Simulated scan of single mutants.
Amino acid sequence: MPNTEYLKIPKERVGVLIGKDGTTKEHIENMTKTELDIESETGSITITPTDEMEDPLSVWKTRYIIKAIGRGFSPETAFKLLDDEFILDIINLQDFVGKSKKAILRQKGRIIGREGRTKEIIKDMTDVDISVYGKTVSLIGDMERIQIAKEAIEMILNGVRHKSVYSFLEKKKQELKRKEFENIVLKE
């Protein structure tokens, strides 16, 4: 039986995790066959496996669903992590710009873009969900697509012009389409 897990999310995200009348918390518990103990004052969460848990990865998946909600994703998007193909990747902006609040704010602005355009382009080109929250940029998608989105975000963080990042994404999108087409042809 997997062990109990402990984690903490920002206090302002606890309400989203619990949901209206506890519906989100209940849904997570039902989907993963785990029990959540949420400490609203601190944001501390305990994940305990239940007796009817079938998937040995349930506690691990629950941890990442909660982490995703804590990093700004909607519960609906976080539930994609129930699928074994999807992962959560978190980029810490401090790794690129240090602790300067001004620098973090500037980089978040570059990643989001005017009226959210850059973030939306990365999402559309890679089919990866993106959340810019606090000092992090979080990604939910399959491994290959996350690598592309992450590379594009790191290019932005390293000062590459948006136009160059968009060209990179366009090239990668074409490569993915070609690969998917080849896989379909091979299966026939």
Rank of each mutant, 00 (worst) to 15 (best):
L81R: 10
L81M: 07
L81D: 06
L81W: 06
L82V: 07
L82Y: 07
L82I: 15
D83H: 06
D83L: 11
D83G: 02
D84I: 06
D84K: 13
D84N: 08
E85Q: 13
E85L: 14
I87V: 13
I87G: 14
I87S: 14
I87K: 15
L88E: 11
D89Y: 14
D89Q: 14
I90Y: 07
I90S: 11
I91W: 03
I91S: 09
I91G: 05
I91Y: 04
N92V: 10
N92S: 13
L93T: 10
L93M: 11
L93N: 09
Q94K: 15
Q94Y: 08
Q94F: 06
Q94E: 15
Q94I: 12
F96T: 01
F96D: 01
V97I: 08
V97S: 06
G98Q: 10
G98M: 11
K99G: 12
K99N: 15
K99Q: 15
K99P: 05
S100R: 12
S100A: 11
S100K: 12
K101D: 13
K101Y: 12
K101S: 14
K102D: 13
K102L: 13
A103I: 01
A103E: 13
A103V: 08
I104Q: 05
I104A: 03
I104F: 07
I104H: 03
L105C: 00
L105K: 09
L105I: 03
R106C: 00
Q107A: 02
Q107I: 06
Q107M: 12
K108C: 09
K108T: 00
G109F: 02
G109K: 04
R110Q: 00
R110W: 00
R110T: 05
R110F: 03
R110M: 08
I111R: 01
I111A: 02
I112N: 03
G113F: 03
G113P: 01
R114E: 07
E115N: 13
E115M: 04
E115Y: 09
E115A: 10
E115C: 00
G116T: 07
G116F: 10
R117Q: 04
R117P: 00
R117K: 09
R117M: 08
R117E: 14
R117A: 06
R117D: 06
T118H: 01
